[in-house]
């Protein structure tokens, strides 16, 4: 049983990266079909970061972003978060609604619900790929949406597991749309117990 994210072995991290690759790949395919554009993924990353480091990594605390959050339960507990920067938002709005936004303030009800839907579909396909691979059952809540400072959005998974760890683990990747790099972080943050369970199901954890 893991007690901290920094106890992960390199084999376990490679396995998680593979999960990230398959999950993000499926999410990109779903997105590509929905938007009718070519979308691929860049090499996915597994990162284990301190709180303040994680906020710098996502691009500073105060920048405003859209976040879609889904909670996992059943055989794996945790949070999955899709952090959508404005470039990504514009790809979605351009393809679905033929609109562009220069700032988040221009987003109305319709635009917001399009973002929630896109986030939800990516998260669900990611989790479907993962559960299929590991042979486990995971339930997802309906997606919740927030448009605010990304530092505060990122502290949601941190606070959730803050009592167990001083680190945040994220598995995820960025997208390439029509040859352009688009930051769209899909972050999977399982709790430590679920992470141990997942690794055991995949046959790489000891004991």
């Amino acid at each position: 049983m893991l007690e901290s994210y920094d106890q992960l072995t390199s084999l376990e991290i490679d396995t998680l990266r593979e999960i990230g690759s398959i999950g993000s790949g499926n999410a990109a395919t779903a997105l590509s079909q929905m938007l009718g554009r070519e979308i691929r993924i860049t090499l996915p990353e597994v990162r284990i970061m301190g709180y303040n480091e994680a906020i710098e990594w996502i691009g500073g605390p105060e920048a405003v972003t859209a976040g879609v959050l889904v909670r996992m339960s059943n055989q794996m507990n945790g949070i999955m978060l899709s952090v959508q920067k404005l470039e990504f938002v514009n790809i979605v709005l351009g393809s679905m609604l033929s609109k562009q936004a220069t700032s988040y303030e221009e987003l109305g009800e319709l635009e917001r619900s399009a973002l929630v839907e896109v986030g939800n579909i990516m998260i669900s396909t990611f989790i479907n790929a993962l559960t299929g691979l590991a042979g486990i059952k995971v339930n997802l809540t309906v997606p919740a949406f927030a448009l605010d400072m990304q530092g505060a959005i990122l502290t949601v998974p941190m606070a959730e597991y803050g009592g167990m760890s001083d680190y945040l683990m994220t598995i995820g990747g960025n997208f390439v749309c029509d040859g352009m790099h688009v930051p769209c972080h899909l972050l999977l943050s399982p709790d430590l117990r679920s992470l141990s369970f997942l690794l055991r199901k995949l046959g790489v954890a000891d004991g």
């Binding site: 976040g67 959050l69 909670r71 507990n77 949070i79 809540t141 959005i153 502290t155 959730e160």
Partner: peptide
């Protein structure tokens, strides 16, 4: 002490 996301379940909502 805000609630960033309206999600059911867990202790996520009321931290």
């Amino acid at each position: 002490g805000a609630k960033m996301f309206e999600v059911a379940g867990g202790n996520l909502g009321n931290i």
